[in-house]
Simulated scan of single mutants.
Amino acid sequence: MGRPRPLFALVLFLTAPAAFAAQRDGGPVRQINITVYGEERCPEPEGDDIVVCARRPEEERYRIPPALRERTDRPAEIAWGTRNDVLEEDARTMRPDSCSVVGSGGQTGCTSALVRQWAAERRARRGR
Rank of each mutant, 00 (worst) to 15 (best):
R56C: 02
I78V: 13
A119V: 01
I50D: 02
P45K: 12
N33T: 10
C99R: 01
D25G: 14
Q23L: 11
A54Q: 05
C42M: 12
A120C: 14
A113E: 10
E77I: 04
A9K: 08
L68E: 06
Q23A: 08
G127I: 08
E59T: 01
N33C: 02
P43S: 06
T93L: 07
D49T: 14
F13S: 09
G47K: 06
A18R: 04
G106Q: 14
I64F: 05
L10M: 11
P65W: 00
T15A: 11
Q31R: 12
R125C: 07
V51N: 03
D49P: 01
R128E: 07
A18M: 14
F13G: 03
E40A: 01
Q117I: 05
G38M: 07
T72L: 07
R56Y: 10
R55W: 10
A21T: 14
I50E: 11
P4Q: 11
R125G: 07
Q31T: 14
P96K: 13
W80D: 00
R30C: 08
T82P: 03
M94H: 07
W118G: 11
C53S: 15
T108L: 02
C99F: 11
P17K: 13
F8M: 13
E70V: 00
R61S: 15
S104Q: 03
G47P: 10
V101I: 01
G81T: 03
D97V: 04
V52N: 12
P6R: 11
R55M: 08
E70W: 07
E60M: 10
Q117W: 08
E89I: 09
R83P: 00
G2P: 14
G103C: 00
G103Y: 01
R74A: 08
W80G: 02
D48K: 14
P75V: 02
V101H: 01
G127N: 04
E44N: 04
R56K: 09
L114N: 03
T35K: 11
R123W: 12
R61F: 03
L12G: 14
R55F: 04
Y62Q: 05
A124I: 01
P6Q: 14
W80R: 00
G26I: 11
C99H: 02
E58K: 01
E77S: 05
